[in-house]
Write a protein that binds this DNA or RNA. Structure first.
Ligand SMILES: [Mn+2]
Ligand SMILES: [Mn+2]
Ligand SMILES: [Mn+2]
Ligand SMILES: [Mn+2]
Lengths: 213, 213
DNA sequence: CATGATTTTTAGATGCGCCTAAAAATGGTG
DNA sequence: CACCATTTTTAGGCGCATCTAAAAATCATG
């Protein structure tokens, strides 16, 4: 009893949901909705992960990764983001097309493959959505400070650094509006953006605001 | 009920074994040994493939692909060989390292991915083992005439065009002896080769025999 | 061409991952 | 603090892919 696509996806969900909130304890309902399955299925899987030593399960409370489970989850995130980078940078896919494909590729089991792919891509630090790529040892490159666009208080020029949680359709719409990683947004442009995007776009203030002076 | 890794691997086995012999009817025992499972498992799977319209099953006789099943099998062979080409040409793997990885990658489901990969690789006609890569429509590029080295009657200089059925260890040993696609073998060299290799190496006679004249 | 050896299929079971329905635990409210 | 609504787990069942053991069909041989 060991790795499988399903177990790996549950592990990743546990990691992603645990990171996205204050407590690392994740409810089975949360996971179920994230993974598109029913809560009893998650309960069953979480119990398996617990037997494998990859997660802790406190009944009626939630589940969280063990250190071992976290390492495995990070290696999956690494693979997912490296493959996304390959698909966009080398094969020319749009950033809205790659998630589902990487969701499959991440489960290919070969340490040599991941490491060669990483080298081939030039050891990228972020994926096409601006998300950081964990290193082989499970640590991250020091990340530049970013803030969510919604919290940019005095509306100033800023540069798009990442897009969080975007559906493929949203990513597509952003592309159509000329938004990509590295795009500089002016206050006027920001005001014209759909409200929902403000919670998804991660930016940093630009020193040079791009205006004529 | 549709595609799955297991069904796809059975389909490929049916194709490979059917091609490698005079009749396209393949016994369940043959498939079982090829796939590393027991004959009853193959019987069950072949019955599923028959329900899907991908194979015909004549009980106590054997199974063979339908035209639909053949198209599916060819698309798997195409994916397998394109990925092997990627792994060797782009990632720098040795030809003995790529089969098992491609065995996983071939099941990734995305038409766009295969076609972009094919273009990225420059529409290669053969894989790292010299095997032809089926085109997207399931046809092959016209293949140069090759013969198995064992049947080279007057021992003359020849060029290695492909290696059939090599285990990873054999491929490794061939590499170590300097044998690669395109290598030119002299009669003296051929005589020094392990007997088993003569059935695996596909060659064509070279016009220029490489000797000093 | 009958009989025994071999191949192949069927029967019955297991583990995985999912489901629905029911039971159990939790937690907010009067 | 007792009750009810909600969340979560358990119970029971299903489809897939595999196995072993037994039955059935085929083949080979005298
Ligand atoms: Mn996945
Ligand atoms: Mn991403
Ligand atoms: Mn395979
Ligand atoms: Mn090959």
């Amino acid at each position: 009893m060991s790795k499988s696509t399903q177990r790996e996806d549950h592990l990743k969900a546990l990691y992603a949901l645990g990171e996205s909130q204050s407590s690392s304890w994740v409810s089975t309902t949360q996971m179920a909705s994230h993974l598109g399955v029913k809560p009893p299925s998650v309960t069953a899987m979480v119990q398996v992960l617990a037997e494998l030593g990859w997660a802790e399960h406190r009944p009626y409370h939630g589940a969280r990764l063990t250190p071992t489970g976290r390492k495995l989850a990070l290696s999956l995130v690494r693979k997912h983001r490296l493959w996304e980078t390959f698909l966009v940078d080398r094969l020319g896919f749009g950033w809205e097309e790659v998630h589902d494909i990487a969701e499959q590729l991440e489960h290919v089991d070969s340490v040599a493959l991941v490491e060669r792919l990483d080298a081939y891509l030039g050891h990228p630090q972020t994926d096409p959505h601006g998300d950081p790529i964990p290193k082989a040892d499970g640590t991250f490159h020091p990340e530049g400070e970013v803030l969510v666009l919604a919290e940019l208080d005095p509306l100033v020029c800023c540069e798009v650094k990442a897009v969080r949680e975007g559906s493929d359709a949203t990513l597509s719409a952003m592309s159509a509006k000329g938004i990509a990683l590295g795009s500089v947004l002016t206050p006027a442009q920001i005001e014209a953006l759909p409200a929902a995007w403000l919670d998804q776009l991660m930016v940093c203030k630009t020193v040079d605001d791009g205006s004529i002076d």
